[in-house]
Nucleic acid binder design. Structure first.
Lengths: 222, 222
DNA sequence: ACCTGAACACCGTTCAAGT
DNA sequence: ACCTGAACACCGTTCAAGT
């Protein structure tokens, strides 16, 4: 009715709200138009089409991802703090980060964090290609973890089979383990533990890993 | 034309082929019907609706995921071999594993691998809740990595910004690192390195990690 | 028991027409 | 420059009607 000229900004805001709350599937051009009180086709004039509307939303998300301030005394502790900060940022926008990811912009979104990680990895004494791999390993760990968490939360009724299938041998040998695996996952703890373990492994003396003979051929047909 | 009575099996096979090649979005009931030479509505009689058709496909995938045979001399090497075998299996069905994942069946799909991992983690001397966390850490690492790889391959034109933004300080301090981060990711190597580092960290003497003072409070507002 | 076409309520997008 | 409705080609799904 009393529209004061539709703006691109207005469209992005409304679309963003829809996606944040109900996911990208809930964003239909017709519903969006209804919400804005305009004709569907007006939206097309401002944003081209649905795909580029989503692109613009993603672009905005990438820019929003704030800078990272590492905390802690040791490089390992500071890397962990970066990882946790990232996880918190990503968890706040589950749908949008999935879209960033699908559009292959994850790396760009991670640039500020990457700079911070490079600094810490350097401080830990790593250099060159090995330092690069360490940075990427942490990055993958964080993204991977968040992606998994997102889908767990969406479908929390995990297999009931898991409980059943732990009677055989392990349950009696190690009931505490069987109980832990049957129960729900403590995501916070698992995340922290995993990152800590990964960083410890990455920062460790490389010679220590050669204690495992023939590790490189563990799975020849891979 | 000369249809010899449509079967549920036939429908699943055709639908599975469509999804494997072009993803779930390419599976429309009408296209599927055309491919099978029947009316759209016949399919509904056999499988209910599109959603339960996809469910059946996912169910099949979960069952298909073969058993795991760990290889290698040390527990660490054998865990790595399990991780690599899993990665290979998952990479062969990228669309389907994404669907398994979205339906929250990842844990069930992973049961055989989990059993194998439990065995190796036990062999490495871990017990109880700590063993459970180690098993899950590896599991998350593998799934996370494969999910990321899948989306990288779909959108390989990653940020061009990454190259630009490495001039400032690091590039001159450590040009090898800048070069490595600007270039493409060697997924095989990154995967192997990450798992190896994670396992090394998980299997390490827990006391060693306390060398990092105040690690648990690295990021108090997380 | 199995298959069918017609119909419904949705989509995204284009286009000629308005102001 | 901006907005509009009509129309097109798609969806998934239901339903009454066939054999």
């Amino acid at each position: 009715m009393a529209r004061t000229s539709l703006t691109r900004e207005e469209i992005l805001a409304a679309a963003g709200a829809l996606v944040r709350q109900h996911g990208p599937a809930a964003l239909t051009m017709r519903k969006l138009a209804a919400e804005l009180g305009t004709a569907v086709t007006s939206i097309y004039w401002h944003v081209g089409n649905r795909e580029s509307l989503l692109d613009a939303l993603v672009e905005r998300t990438v820019e929003e991802l704030g800078e990272i301030r590492p905390r802690g005394r040791t490089p390992a502790a500071r890397v962990l703090s970066v990882a946790r900060a990232l996880r918190r940022e990503l968890r706040a926008r589950p749908h949008l980060i999935a879209m960033v990811h699908e559009r292959g912009l994850t790396d760009r979104m991670f640039l500020p964090a990457q700079q911070a990680l490079v600094h810490e990895v350097h401080a830990a004494g790593l250099r060159g290609a090995r330092a690069a791999r360490a940075v990427r390993a942490v990055q993958f760990q964080v993204v991977g973890h968040v992606l998994i968490e997102r889908n767990r939360e969406r479908a929390p009724v995990q297999s009931p089979a898991e409980e059943d299938l732990w009677h055989p041998s392990t349950a009696e040998q190690d009931p505490a383990l069987a109980r832990a695996l049957a129960g729900a996952v403590d995501q916070d703890r698992l995340f922290t533990d995993s990152v800590r373990a990964l960083v410890a492994g990455l920062f460790a003396d490389p010679g220590a890993q050669e204690a495992d003979p023939g590790g490189g051929e563990a799975d020849p047909d891979a």
